[in-house]
Design a protein around this nucleic acid. Sequence first.
DNA 1: TTATTTTATGCAACCGATTCCGTTATTTAT
DNA 2: ATAAATAACGGAATCGGTTGCATAAAATAA
Lengths: 344, 344
Amino acid sequence: MSLKKEITIYDLARELNYSPSTISRALNDHKSISKKTIKKIKETAQEMGYRPNTLAAGLRNNKSKTIGISISRINRPFMSSLISGIEEEARKSGYNVIISQSHDKYENEVNNTKALYDSRISGLIVSLSMETIKLDHFKQFMKQGIPVVFVDRAPHGLNSYKVVIDNYTAGYNATKHLIEQGCTRIAHFAGAQHRNIYEGRKKGYLDALKEHEIEIDDELIIHFKTLSFEEGEKATKKLLKLPSPPDGIFSANDTAAVSAVMTAKKQGVKIPEELAVIGFNDDPIASIVEPSLSTVSHPAEKMGRISAKRILNHSDKTHDEGISEVTVLHTDIIVRDSSNRKKS
Amino acid sequence: MSLKKEITIYDLARELNYSPSTISRALNDHKSISKKTIKKIKETAQEMGYRPNTLAAGLRNNKSKTIGISISRINRPFMSSLISGIEEEARKSGYNVIISQSHDKYENEVNNTKALYDSRISGLIVSLSMETIKLDHFKQFMKQGIPVVFVDRAPHGLNSYKVVIDNYTAGYNATKHLIEQGCTRIAHFAGAQHRNIYEGRKKGYLDALKEHEIEIDDELIIHFKTLSFEEGEKATKKLLKLPSPPDGIFSANDTAAVSAVMTAKKQGVKIPEELAVIGFNDDPIASIVEPSLSTVSHPAEKMGRISAKRILNHSDKTHDEGISEVTVLHTDIIVRDSSNRKKS
DNA sequence: TTATTTTATGCAACCGATTCCGTTATTTAT
DNA sequence: ATAAATAACGGAATCGGTTGCATAAAATAA
């Protein structure tokens, strides 16, 4: 029953015969407090078991040391790694991380970001929901000078921080890789085209074909809604029924790619000889499926770390309305068995 | 540049000629405010775009509407699903969720829980780190009447909420399943035995053998440190070199089990005919590996939901020092190809 | 030596909601 | 009709830091 009384800066002030302001400043290493005083105060704070009340500080500053995250779903390998990176970086600096899931619904994203806004977060890291087109729900942050970092799934316009990969080049290289393996009819599992990442991957795919003078066949480009396993299965079956089926598939994610590998194999198609497949993300399933899936590696944790740093370093001075710093990370093609015809 | 002024209950009070106390009470549906007044106040609050300042409320109550989580790692299928469940349930009630990762280090867990404590969380949900043995860092919460829910990896003693699965029965049934498939020499990939979950699974394994009068061979019980893919590979190779190798493996997680399947297959061992394998968790990789992995399903999201509810429903009245409500969820054996000899 | 900075610290007003303790009408009981 | 109970609301302190504006002392400049 003994609710240990929390000690405050006032207790420290009384103990040390200083004013609360001095205590506060000392604990924050304010320059106008002498080193000796700071040291003394910090020591007794330690001894007395002082714990700063972040709520009080937050109230005063109208800002909590907290980073908010809005993503589609936590339980996706890419997303959980991203969060992991953010969390580690944030915690180093004494920031908390609060998460919210949109489940790829625009409405949820709006509600969640509102809730985060109300929580006085110091910054927001967003990977847009699949549905999101309107971006008004982010303007409140910008108005208040609260940094917003779009990661991976970023919007086109809107001046703000962005941490993305070069989807175009990745798509180009993945397709080029298939071409180099001798593929001449390459299909593409495309994601929703209003999401930058899928748009970039498709463009890269198209340009790679063009540059190698391979005719583009619209029949081979399948637009997915969610790039799920089931969709992948359906698409693969459809492709294999074609009079002239593809000899290569570049999928915009690993789930659909793995699905293609398994479906094709079940139908007796030889992989990679008859059909070479490459995915995107390097999810754990990619190395488990047989034959193992070639893919494009996605530096998820690193993206998380960088996003967090963007927020932690965002000085409030830069109240310039239009901060636009875009970080583009590069990706690697990971060649595994599903596309390696030359057994290099 | 126009930093929109946030409106407070004082603004509402002025506007409506009420006192701030009345506004506050009305917004919280206090019984001593008339329905009409409440309605009127809430309406104009809506119109004027009022947003409650959770920091101020938190400061006053010494409690933020926030649930803290301490887990080993976010980017594990089980953990991210768990968090997903917690987040959904919490958000429904207007709570935020803040996460921290221990990376299975005791020291991190201690630091993280301290940080969460300082953030005045309303409750803590913990899945213990692999190293944790001492539990003193949780006592501060109990002293303050802040509910702590141990989920999955729970401690033995310590009165508090627990949400776990019946690891013993799961281990028993998994082993029994292998026996029913005709296995007579069944190996076990065991996890750290001071963690309840691994202890239970092993006990279930042992008892299943005893009850079916199968001799226990210590050579077949391998104690893992982290149940990683690499460890699984090593263990499998070792087992297969035995003069009399096992014809079945019950692994305490899927990662090691998948590793066993792949390793054994590479060595020409027929699965499930010569070696039947069953894992634990039902991770995504389980259904991708070939042959697909039999496993024990782990209701991760549900566990998260229940854990969150425990905290949300924890009335502060129950200040009884010793709340001990244990929720035991049941698991299902999922039979896939890696153990299905009878092709039922 | 006197004037001017610089250094170190204190005062007190916030930040926005909550709540104990009244006070004044309005009912209900006697 | 008067006492007692109830309903509806207001006053003001409180939560624990933060910070602009003094002020006093010490250091430096003139």
